[in-house]
Amino acid sequence: MSWKKDKVRKPAKPNEALTRRDFLQGAGVAVSGGLLVGREPAIAASPDEKAKVLGPEAVPITLRINGKAQKLTLEPRVTLLDALRNHLDMTGAKKMCDRGTCGACTVILDGKAVYACSVLAIAAQGKEILTIEGLAAGGKLHPVMTAFVEHDAHQCGFCTPGFVMASKAFLDKNPNPLQQDVEEGLGGNLCRCGVYVGVRQAALDAAKARLGEKGGKAHGKV
């Protein structure tokens, strides 16, 4: 395959990248782009441009997760999902396809469901990030979680955190959904065990429970 021959360059080890950059900066040598690598001159590198460019080495990043500010040092290429799982030990969001297709990594960013694998951590700064860990505040299950338990809306459980987060974001926006709304609204998550019926019932029931608390009237059951 052609990429094996010439396209893939080995990712530089972080400290190597740092060393090269530090060396060039520290030495204070006016190195022309062409001397570095053949590819260099195509990218603008005037000082004012350079100042706004971060990385590729790890840079300080602050993420606001479940109401708390978390300070990290990450390379710009690190996704929000990897930041959560590998750097913050928050393994609720699952890494399954890692290609924005399965929904197992779903988190809520500024109130909207997103795939954490398809967001760069550096680009999630300044946003409110809600993960499954933040949903059961104080050890009390969120109504969506309770409904998932009651409806057995899981089998192996790997897709469950993503489905719970997607359901919460969906119900926040559609407090009184019909069956078809639920089917469409949870269309961004996959379950290979096939617990879709349970998940949809759970979402409908969670909506009912919430409306009941507020004295509203829910649409009919499934």
């Binding site: 195509a42 990218i43 706004k52 971060l54 080495e57 290429r77 760069l120």
Partner: peptide, 27 residues
């Protein structure tokens, strides 16, 4: 994913200056 540098410009003029003049260098 290969390591990359990251820029987050706030104007389109700045964004265009940060891009490369040939494909593959900047995305």
């Amino acid at each position: 994913m290969q390591a990359f540098e990251y820029a987050n410009p706030t104007t389109k003029e700045e964004a265009v200056r940060l891009l490369a003049n040939q494909w593959g260098e900047a995305e």
